[in-house]
Design a protein around this nucleic acid. Structure first.
Lengths: 333, 333
DNA sequence: CATCCATGTTGCAACGTTGCATGCCACGTT
DNA sequence: AACGTGGCATGCAACGTTGCAACATGGATG
């Protein structure tokens, strides 16, 4: 094991407390003493013991990042940015996968959180606002995504309604009139899909196009497979379409595959727009038009919220931060 | 904060030690006492304090997962599986991005490791075997990938030479004779690219095809962009090719994009094979033929190594575990 | 009846750190 | 000479847990 304060103290011929002062950089230490202690520290390769500091100070320096699945490109990219930002602020990042189900998300809120981490950044998928606010313990919690908690919690999000409206409007401006929406998730409490659907409908309505329930396709999850299946289902039916707005890039990439397999051209026969701007969509063929949320800003703001809340223990008013987004027009439309 | 053992003890009218015994499940506790204590635990919602346990027991229950970048699909998928397996074994997973540079990888070995985590799973990218073995402290370390450490450390890998040979042989069996290799990384210590190149050359040699240095293309990183650029470079030159073996799926997906943009057909004009079997390749158009390493096995074996080494403190002989792989033939060849 | 054992239960100490209060010294002021 | 002051260093206690050894109790054994 590593050297302790006591060992360093003995070596330097000072008290444990003085070594602690040198290590912390604070307090008054005579220059001569400081160099002597520092020498002992270097010789013994002293490293502060994280467990003792945690026990004594009540802070672990750990933040949990809870997402449905880290392997999903969007959450992978977000996790990368969050981990970077966390490191910049001297936090270590714990990764916690919820699988997107309510049971695991709830277990997470009760479990890990309380005793190991100083804060949690949660991207809820299945929890209702009620679940979120009914938390006995008070570990700082920041929400990502659409699921609001009635203004009780810090919350970083994009304006999904506006973004979805822009995406749909873009398709309309390209002359499309039979625009399907893929990605409804009526079985989840999660408000994301609902908001994107809302934006989609607003755009249709603004353009005087009818909203047709037959064009609104629910999916089980947000994987490529689901997008592929959803479009296949549409194409095998009697419905005519000339565009699809998918609620995630993953869905869009799956849908594109189905379209191409059916011999359709993109964007000739079908224009496709996604949401997330993951790396895949930039190099797919054709490249994918998408809504690009400002992920760097999400990471930055989420950690900033946590920092503020952990620093000032007690009452900081809950914040709701809306980060920017951008429509990136590429070859698929 | 949460209740402590002492508070539970007072409430149940027993000693702190007895409560500890109940919580741990071990030792002898009279059934009647146990239920009484359990009741107090439930009422007070007692949760063991992780910091105290860590300090007392010397184990944090944390394992660090150190990869170049979590946003990269291969590492994302691997991280997901590793985190799942870790949870199954009651570890929490810390995520540590090295950026694939030697400085950060070295810093990681000296820093975090020592005082916070019980073990590290490292996917080295830039470190030499020398860097890896020259470690003063003795925190269990498991290596992923090709970079061996002279048999000094636990090491989980695929047989890259054999896999690359199979991939190349597959292209030869499809009648290709001008097969390029994309993905050399002469600037890194990392042995991965070197082994895949070795397997590629072996296959050519076995088939009596000449190895042509002009067909072996180095890249800076392993992103789609690099694959796209590499193929563009090849196509703009005088060299004729009818197939590409890319050392990662990312490179392959980038190369496919370039090929399609140049109006080439896949696999008609150019057959493409990748390495990794990431989700993207399953839904790209055309879908990507690739080498699929058994990622579940990698995750399982890596955690098993760590468990064994942490459990039995001291001398466990270093293990080298080779997990299986499989050539998945899809539309790109 | 003394002894031994198994079963329950307990107090003490220690893990390494830092907040707090105190001690000590030299120096300058009244 | 007595006093206050500021710079520096230290000892004690506590964070919450568990290993260890010891201690009760009651029943079985010699």
């Amino acid at each position: 094991m590593s050297a302790t304060l006591r060992q360093v103290a003995e070596r330097a011929g000072v008290s444990v407390r003085t070594v602690s002062n040198v290590v912390s950089g604070f307090a008054l230490v005579a220059p001569e003493t400081r160099t002597r202690v520092q020498a002992a520290i270097d010789e013994l390769q002293y490293r502060p013991n994280a467990a003792a500091r945690h026990l004594r100070g009540g802070r672990s320096g750990l933040v949990a990042l809870a997402v449905p699945e880290i392997a999903s490109p969007y959450f992978g990219e977000l996790a990368g940015l969050l981990a970077e930002e966390a490191e910049r602020r001297s936090w270590l990042t714990l990764i916690q996968q919820t699988g997107g189900n309510a049971r695991d998300e709830r277990a997470l809120l009760d479990g890990v959180r309380g005793q190991v981490v100083d804060g949690v950044i949660l991207s809820p998928w299945a929890l209702s606002p009620g679940d979120l606010t009914r938390r006995p313990e008070a570990v700082p919690l920041v929400l990502l995504g659409e699921q609001d908690a009635g203004g009780m919690l810090d919350h970083v999000t994009v304006d999904s309604i506006a973004a979805a409206r822009e995406a749909t409007r873009h398709l309309i401006e390209r002359g499309r009139t039979r625009i399907a929406a893929i990605g409804l998730q009526p079985h989840l409490e999660n408000g994301t899909a609902a908001r994107r659907l809302e934006g989609y409908r607003q755009a249709l309505s603004e353009a005087g196009l009818p909203a047709d329930p037959v064009l609104e396709i629910p999916v089980d999850r947000l994987h490529r497979r689901d997008g592929a299946d959803a479009l296949a289902q549409l194409l095998s039916g009697p419905v005519q379409i000339d565009a699809v707005f998918c609620f995630s890039d993953q869905l869009a990439l799956g849908a594109m595959r189905t379209a191409l397999q059916h011999g359709l051209t993109i964007p000739g026969d079908i224009a496709v727009v996604g949401f997330d701007d993951v790396e895949d969509g930039r190099f797919s063929t054709p490249s994918l038009t998408t809504i690009s949320p400002d992920k760097e800003a999400i990471a930055r703001e989420a950690l900033a919220c946590l920092d503020d809340r952990v620093g000032a223990n007690g009452q900081v008013p809950a914040r709701r931060i809306v980060v920017g987004h951008q429509l990136l027009v590429r070859d698929s439309s």
